[in-house]
Design a protein around this nucleic acid. Sequence first.
DNA 1: GTAGTGTTACTCGGATAAATATTGTCCGAGTGACATCGG
DNA 2: CCGATGTCACTCGGACAATATTTATCCGAGTAACACTAC
Lengths: 172, 172
Amino acid sequence: MKLGEGVEASIHCAATLASLAGNSTMPAAALAESFGLSPSYLLKQLNMLAAARILESVPGPAGGYRLAREAERITLLDIVLAIEGREPAFRCGEIRRNGPAKLDASAYVKPCGINAAMLRAERAYRAALAETRLSDIVAEYQAEGDPRSIAASCAFVERHQRPQKSGSTKRS
Amino acid sequence: MKLGEGVEASIHCAATLASLAGNSTMPAAALAESFGLSPSYLLKQLNMLAAARILESVPGPAGGYRLAREAERITLLDIVLAIEGREPAFRCGEIRRNGPAKLDASAYVKPCGINAAMLRAERAYRAALAETRLSDIVAEYQAEGDPRSIAASCAFVERHQRPQKSGSTKRS
DNA sequence: GTAGTGTTACTCGGATAAATATTGTCCGAGTGACATCGG
DNA sequence: CCGATGTCACTCGGACAATATTTATCCGAGTAACACTAC
């Protein structure tokens, strides 16, 4: 039960992207520099987020990434599932059938109680993640964060965001 | 966010051990055969459970494993933590400090909001796991499971459990 | 001055290695049971 | 016949590989901006 390191990077980057103005974009290289990450690897995470329709990518010069929808409509669960996969963490291998007692499948129509309990717990986990929106993260940071850190973040965003000319037409 | 395969095996084995009589033990080889697992690898899982004081190991002939305490006092959380480790799945690497803005540590005395949200979700997950006791798993299986499967399990337990000297001398 | 066009530099994207964690296997240390030997 | 003792087989325990997953890196495809040229 270990989450990949990319989850943390993805959430931080998404929060940063939530702070830029209008439909501006920010290059992955800038995000990587902002958090001291490998640009090449972060690109893979951002690409997964884009595949999950959480981010949008704009190619070419003055391109970059931006949120695909409002920060109020993006939850931490969305990001975690995009990076770690949608399958539950506990995968029932139905090992109860593999023993020497070779019963036919009709003996196992009822779901495994262990699997049910595990999935119940995971539903609670996901529900808790779904309650936190990206906008909550940003708002909490703006309200409670250290003023120097906020100022540095704003300056960084101002320096690296690339305003887009055309309107917000979705593409993939 | 993937749990190891050993978690499933551990819970199944613990449930099986909860079904044997008195302070009898069952060898790891029998448990492995019961679920079609590698005996050598299952031994590692059982050893971790024993290190966590969930199981007890009895060496020598007629030895094996048994629960270290009543099934009512063992939760799924105990088992999961013993196998997967006690550390939270989300480990905050404090990447917010690694950027080019070199602020000193006083700017980061407040905990990271992202980390807080993640840990909150994980607390919900663990709380849900802690609500399910091993005895609940066994009881649910005895009540709802397929009769053929229950009979096979009981026969298997009867055949492989090893009564200990100080306990009840029940043997066919 | 303006429109068309070719170049260029910048971006993302996917294929490719290294590192790490997990899974699987092996042989050795320890222990109690069992058979044997002596009283 | 009963007890002490030596041997032995069975158990767990930890050290040693194989595999899968995660992490990190590189180079190529694509695109829009920019400069240049012609009108």
